[in-house]
């Protein structure tokens, strides 16, 4: 091809998901919610801790889902916002003795600002170029957290220990269980917010940009504003997830927020189904439990087993858990007709 310029019809990198297909039906939602409320009553503390982990990682995957599945922008930098959220929460709790539930909104605001600002230069980039830019952010974050002049607050390489909050009002609950329900409430609130966001004018703007940026701007969508807004919202939610993780793990250190975390969140999104919000929790389950299962099968080859399991999942359901849900729905529909 000798032409210097190629003209292509822009094909969206992320397939279009209609907004109704992004959520669960009311019936299913209630069942899932009841399960989430009931399970801890019958589980050991360690299991409850793992469920808490499932919830806040699910929240981080959800945030990426809004960015990628909603507005079609790809990010490998989520670990950076997660780290900022965790550090803001930890530093406020430990150095300034501010109660944990007040730290989370602050983490959200700080991360929203960071995401919004980062979204500005990212506007010019798309596809792999955007991936590289966000990747740079992810590799820079642990180093920035280790910087000397921040050490007074962040504890440097050593990190910070966070005290676990007790259940309030003398409720007869273990710390783990209280934290689980606290996390559940936060996650639910943000889930409902996200569903509504995607159904709103802004959500429609995100999806228009995802499906075809040029067409969207021709229709009067302020592309720059909504792209940066998507970055900001996604960063804010990721920040809350990071804050919850700091409280639950009771520890933050720079090396917990490396690119590995961002890759895990990405895998969680793919396994859960890109653009399907409830899938986030399935994806989170995958990234928490499958490595353990792989280790159980073979210690020396755990990485290989994990890779093979991941391949199996993407062969069977290339569209992630969403595909399973759609199949289930169709099956249920058929049964009802018979």
């Amino acid at each position: 091809m000798s032409a210097v310029e190629d003209v292509v019809t822009e094909a969206p990198a992320v397939e279009a998901v209609p907004k109704r297909a992004m959520t669960l039906g009311t019936g299913t939602s209630v069942v899932v919610l009841l399960l989430l409320i009931a399970i801890p009553l019958f589980a050991k503390n360690f299991v409850i801790f793992q469920l808490t982990q499932l919830l806040y990682l699910g929240l981080a995957v959800l945030a990426l889902n809004i960015l990628t599945g909603g507005s079609g922008q790809f990010s490998l930098g989520q670990s950076a916002f997660y780290g900022i959220g965790a550090y803001v929460t930890a530093v406020m709790m430990e150095q300034f003795n501010i109660p944990y539930f007040l730290c989370l909104p602050v983490a959200a605001v700080v991360c929203f600002g960071a995401g919004f600002l980062f979204g500005q230069p990212a506007l010019r980039l798309s596809g792999v170029y955007l991936a590289l830019a966000t990747f740079a952010l992810a590799t820079a974050m642990p180093q920035l957290l280790k910087l000397n002049f921040l050490e007074k607050w962040t504890g440097g390489v050593q990190g910070l220990v966070v005290t676990k909050p007790d259940a309030p009002f003398g409720l007869p609950m273990s710390q783990d269980m209280w934290l689980y329900y606290f996390t559940l409430v936060v996650v639910l609130a943000i889930y409902i917010f996200s569903v509504n966001l995607l159904r709103s004018r802004s959500g429609r703007a995100f999806m228009a940009i995802r499906d075809n940026e040029i067409a969207a701007s021709a229709m009067g969508v302020n592309v720059a504003l909504y792209k940066t807004l998507a970055f900001g919202v996604s960063a804010a939610i990721t920040g809350v997830a990071g804050g919850l993780s700091a409280i639950a793990v009771q520890f933050v250190a720079p090396d917990s927020f490396t690119i590995t975390l961002a890759i895990q969140l990405f895998l969680g999104m793919v396994v859960g189904g890109v653009g399907w919000l409830p899938g986030s929790i399935v994806g989170a389950a995958f990234i928490i439990f499958v490595p353990n299962i792989a280790e159980g099968i073979s210690k020396g080859l755990s990485g290989a087993v994990f890779g093979v399991l991941l391949f199996l999942v993407i062969y069977l359901v290339p569209h992630g858990a969403r595909q399973v849900a759609i199949l289930g729905q169709q099956l249920a529909g058929k049964l009802r007709k018979n």
Binding site: F266, G303, G307
Partner: peptide
């Protein structure tokens, strides 16, 4: 399969080769 699924495939391949 979608592009992002392919990327997940690359990550899986990475894990398999590295670990083997």
């Amino acid at each position: 399969a979608p592009v992002l699924t392919n990327v997940a495939g690359f990550i899986a391949l990475y894990a398999i080769i590295n670990s083997s």
